[in-house]
């Protein structure tokens, strides 16, 4: 087990280097010219300005040279400077990543909780109204685009009924707490402001639900299928023959046996959530990586694009590793050497 984790950790830097290289190369095959992002249209015809800009941003060097310099800088934590914000990309990312993580984790919590509960209920009450309702809920969540769902729910819950707040992480009139972790829920608590904490949670509900719904759908279908299979196995009969009650049979005996595939799908949903966060953040004015990535792509802000891609890739690698470790912990039959 320890050896397995160690081996995976040793492989990590090489995988990261692969991501860096791919992200870097992808920007060179795009049609857009980064100069249009740096230099204003009028100045593009001025060779002096263009040459100066090229020299300043390193665009006059050859591709291998730029690659070596980029990787070298990356090792010192320097991801270059954004064309648009004119701030170091690493600083931008550090500022925006916690917002995205907070949203994604909340969405994951919503998705997993609703998904597992619905899956268990649907399997136990198969072919009843509960099962059909769960199927509809799952199908709806998986087929409705995030941007439509986000707008529709905002309109109903915020505009029409006013029971949930509009976009943003906090009430617009509130003074945000000093940034420590970047997680609004944590920072407000660290500032000792419970009212602000509740406001942050309040603002998190709708985007987390919008983002988590599709995941809840996928998880509930998978949990239902696995529960049906496990509930027909003989050890379930044994548990009942022992005198175990239905709740214990379902949760302790059946659900635990569906944990492995469930953990896998939860782990891999992370990739979906990271991409889904792009649209959700745009709709909910969430200052996270998603909206940053959209701005970067629109403005041909190559350093920012590469930076976002690398960070996303690394997060994906880490969640995959954690998923695999959880897999081993949950399944005693898997012993990884």
């Amino acid at each position: 087990m320890t050896r397995y984790i160690l081996r995976r950790l040793i492989a990590m830097p090489f995988l990261v280097l692969g991501i860096v290289t791919l992200a870097f190369l992808l920007t060179t095959v795009t049609k857009g010219d980064p100069l249009t992002a740096i230099v204003s249209d009028r100045q593009l015809n001025n060779p002096e300005v263009v040459a100066a800009a090229k020299a300043k941003w390193g665009l006059d060097r050859s591709l291998p040279e730029r690659y070596v310099i980029y990787v070298g800088n990356l090792l010192t934590g320097d991801m270059g400077t954004s064309f648009i914000t004119r701030r170091p990309v690493a600083q931008d990312v550090l500022y925006r990543l916690p917002a995205t993580m907070e949203l994604v984790i909340a969405a994951m919590a919503v998705g997993a909780t609703i998904g597992i509960s619905l899956g268990v209920l649907a399997a136990y009450f198969r072919n009843t109204a509960i099962d059909h309702a769960a199927r509809f809920f799952a199908l709806f969540g998986s087929s409705i685009p995030v941007f439509w769902l986000g707008l529709a729910l905002l309109y109903v819950f915020s505009v029409q009924w006013g029971i949930l707040p509009g976009p943003g992480r906090l009430d617009a009139r509130a003074t945000p707490p000093p940034m420590v972790t970047g997680f609004m829920t944590v920072d407000t608590l660290m500032a000792g402001n419970v009212r602000l904490f509740l406001d942050a949670v309040w603002h998190l509900i709708l985007p987390a639900f919008v983002l988590g719904w599709a995941v809840a759908g996928t998880i509930s279908r998978l949990v239902r299928a696995n529960m049906l299979e496990v509930l027909s196995r003989e050890f379930i009969l044994t548990a009942r023959a022992k005198g175990a009650g239905e709740f214990r049979v379902v949760i302790r005996h059946a659900l635990r046996n569906t944990l492995v595939p469930t953990l896998t799908v939860i782990g891999y949903s992370f990739a979906y959530l990271l991409t889904g966060a792009v649209l959700t953040e745009t709709i909910f004015s969430w200052p996270g990586m998603g909206s940053y990535a959209v701005d970067a792509a629109r403005g041909l802000d190559f350093p920012a694009i590469i930076g976002v891609t690398i960070v996303g890739g690394v997060i994906f690698l880490i969640t995959n590793l954690l998923t695999d470790i959880a897999y081993v912990v949950a399944n005693p039959r898997v012993r990884l050497g």
Binding site: E234, F235, L237, T238, K242, H253
Partner: peptide, 25 residues
Amino acid sequence: LRELRGSRIGMIFQDPLSSLNPVMT
């Protein structure tokens, strides 16, 4: 019935591998 099963009346089944929960010691 649950109170009787496993206390006053015990049962064992045909295939002991599938009759035991694989993820519990």
